[in-house]
Design a protein around this nucleic acid. Sequence first.
DNA 1: GTACATTGTGAATTGTGAATCACAATTCTG
DNA 2: CAGAATTGTGATTCACAATTCACAATGTAC
Lengths: 208, 208
Amino acid sequence: MRAVKTETDIRRDQIAEAAMELIGAGGLSSLSIAGIGERVGIVPSAVYRHYKGKDAVLDAVLQLLRARMLAHVEAVRGETPGALLRLRLLLVRHMTMLVEHPAFSHVVFAHFSHAGHAARWSGLHDTMCAYLKEIARIVEEGQHEGAIRSDIPSRTAAVMFIGLVLPAAMLHRLSGGDFDASAHVDAAWPVFLRGLAADGDRRRRRSG
Amino acid sequence: MRAVKTETDIRRDQIAEAAMELIGAGGLSSLSIAGIGERVGIVPSAVYRHYKGKDAVLDAVLQLLRARMLAHVEAVRGETPGALLRLRLLLVRHMTMLVEHPAFSHVVFAHFSHAGHAARWSGLHDTMCAYLKEIARIVEEGQHEGAIRSDIPSRTAAVMFIGLVLPAAMLHRLSGGDFDASAHVDAAWPVFLRGLAADGDRRRRRSG
DNA sequence: GTACATTGTGAATTGTGAATCACAATTCTG
DNA sequence: CAGAATTGTGATTCACAATTCACAATGTAC
């Protein structure tokens, strides 16, 4: 059955979305033009009407992920004041994101399998840096508030923050879902907090 | 030039080693039978004399990595007494390992790109669990010593420990080597230690 | 040295997936 | 409606890598 003719703007979105789902379901290696076509409801070659090639589709997926990632930070800023609470909330949202968009972890880790194409992944690097920068900014705000020790480099704290979720996401997938990533994050948070929080500042005790 | 006839035991080792190097250099996607043959000095088809196929080679690599990983824990046990010092030392060794054997990170993360073959990666899961278990055991020893808070699940601490290196390794690779993973680990350690160490136990101050 | 097993070789086979192309259908514009 | 632009289709090409196979070389046992 012939697919209904649809304008490129819409198709591009559909294709990027389909690509993200494919990656989320089966990893980067299962991203194929044929698979995209099937999901969108067009024939493989029709994909080339809307994207130059597979790489272009991947770039679009990266853009999608970047947008959603930074949107989370933005949202957290609006929901809560206070650096420590924001970090805690971001942690939850970060986990949720990894569950809702497994494509994210796949893409993040995929450059390990497809190393050598350094240029292709520079966009991903930019995204990660932007995210780290946002987290670091929250940390710095916390340091100004006096809630977070000032002798901790904000970037170090930001990378450690990522370190709370990254291995959890990895184990979750590696175990086929057995590892409870959320439970780990909940258990790890107070430990991280104790390392982070300023000594004299005990006003925040409700942080388990 | 015809390769000298070599017995299978040796060839199997050579092939596994070559495969590990290939993965380390260019990611899992650059592991090819042809590449292995070239490194070993035999023709691609000759590889099949010693391994059933590509999957079997990959399994062998996984075994190699498992052995080296657990050897590090063993070595640390022999080098230092005291849980906290052992963890600190293991951290350094862990980083060193990731630098010396980039294949390790590649393989660990590769299952994200090649998801769906759950069975293939169960061996990797076992290895990770074994490693986590060793770390958790050190943590438990530290809790018995009174150096580490007893209200922290040892497994949580172990996963957090992994979280100190994982993102660092990722950023290192993502940035093309710009990110200084060792520096991050050095900066992150005291923060982690503060979260981990028992309150009443201040005997260990030389941990920066 | 002769039979036999082992290992190496090159060619051929097969499978996969990206990309191209000529052509058909559809939509838009006048 | 006529013509142009856009989008969809199927066949096809291309590159690449895994695997198989018949055969050659090498080594081993008797």
